[in-house]
Design a protein around this nucleic acid. Structure first.
Lengths: 224, 224
DNA sequence: AATAAAAATTAGGTGTGACTAAATTATAGT
DNA sequence: ACTATAATTTAGTCACACCTAATTTTTATT
């Protein structure tokens, strides 16, 4: 039939995240994420949209979305990735800023048995070390009620549930500020002009974060 | 430079095991092990023997051996493979007949950090679940004093240290006979004609094994 | 509505690593 | 030493997934 190669998995994973907001993914955006030329994406996407069970929907100049099959395949890889990150941190002592690369490589090659065994060893976790939701074994993505920290306004309180970042340096920076899942936040001051937000993290001295940071941190306001 | 791809690693690994006995590896033998056509091997081997830092020594019709660089690369992969097998069995509950495939895939993709972390978690083991020696972190292969069970003669006693097999069905069979590393063996009877060996395993009722089995089991006669 | 700029696609080309078929070289038997 | 057979290599092809350059389509501006 049609083997889903490592490459194709990477395409599907990126298409998944790009189309998460509801919009179709443009070839250019995909190319940028994958670090390849737009023309190469066009070719690949045409291939993925062909055959009897296409993995993506594609019409010229209209962007790409996942078919149900493609979505399944994407969620499978994402589940692998997030379980791996969780395992590396929890069981092998990796730091949270260091797991992305390793998980990105291994996610394509672990078997279903490996997936299931590490999931069990971890107690079937729902979130990875960054708070990202882990798709269920049935490949359904749990719903996420969180909102961006950048939307928080004084004097709202919230708890960090998720940090959307792969970049090592950024993650280390966030950790040094205490901006990790579980941290309690109170918005202290908001500047309309530069979108800076002054927040208090876990009762410590307030800090100021710009939107480059606050856009990547997600919180819930009324945690149980 | 010259990236050592997954493919090349597989070549080097097979060349390592084929040249273990001292002989150069023939292209045909390599092709059989790798499951590809002999002609393909010739092409690949010519490439590997070229460049400034060749990974193999090769002369037409003379077979292939590893250069020091090639040997290092092979031992790196073999270390990955055997550490992975050990980790899968010890930490994730895999059965010994089921680890080969998984390790064969992952061995190419784990980082040095991963290698080192699982080695530490396992207490820097010297042998994998089949008793195969694990190259050291400095990529030296420990020496192995064992001899084939097929060379044992009544009334010699020995202990199994190593089982040279990847095949799942064979491994399950051996396990059911108690022929696993650590088992105590006494040779009871040897048939010169069919090379069958009757042995007693761990004080149980004697069993008869043919050379297809006894050639793959390695023992030491005078364990400390 | 015309046109400039941006986005996307087509066309043509590359390297990798496999393949088959044909030719060559080595080995073994008489 | 000769010849049949086996092993190996050469030659030529293919699919994959990328590339660059050129073209076409879309979009945004005036």
């Amino acid at each position: 039939m049609k083997p889903i190669t490592q490459n194709i998995q990477d395409y599907l994973k990126e298409i998944y995240t790009l189309t998460d907001g509801g919009e179709a993914a443009s070839t250019t955006a995909l190319a940028a994420r994958l670090g390849i030329a737009p023309a190469s994406v066009t070719g690949m996407v045409q291939k993925l949209a062909g055959g009897t069970h296409p993995l993506v929907n594609y019409r010229k100049h209209q962007g790409v979305t996942l078919t149900p099959e493609g979505k399944r395949a994407a969620l499978e890889v994402i589940r692998h990735h997030r379980l791996l990150e969780t395992y590396l941190v929890t069981m092998l002592g990796y730091s949270w800023d260091n797991v992305h690369e390793e998980a990105c490589r291994l996610e394509h090659f672990i078997s279903e048995e490996f997936e299931s065994r590490i999931a069990v060893a971890l107690g079937n976790p729902i979130r990875d070390p960054h708070g990202e939701l882990i798709p269920t074994p049935e490949l359904e993505m749990p719903s996420d009620e969180s909102l961006a920290l950048s939307a928080l306004r004084p004097p709202q309180k919230a708890v960090i549930v998720r940090v959307r970042a792969d970049d090592s340096a950024l993650l280390r920076h966030l950790e040094s500020l205490g901006l990790v899942p579980g941290a309690k936040i109170q918005a202290v001051e908001y500047s309309l002009f530069d979108h800076n937000l002054r927040i208090q993290v876990d009762e410590k001295l307030p800090i100021v974060v710009g939107s480059a940071i606050s856009d990547k941190i997600f919180v819930v306001c009324n945690p149980l």
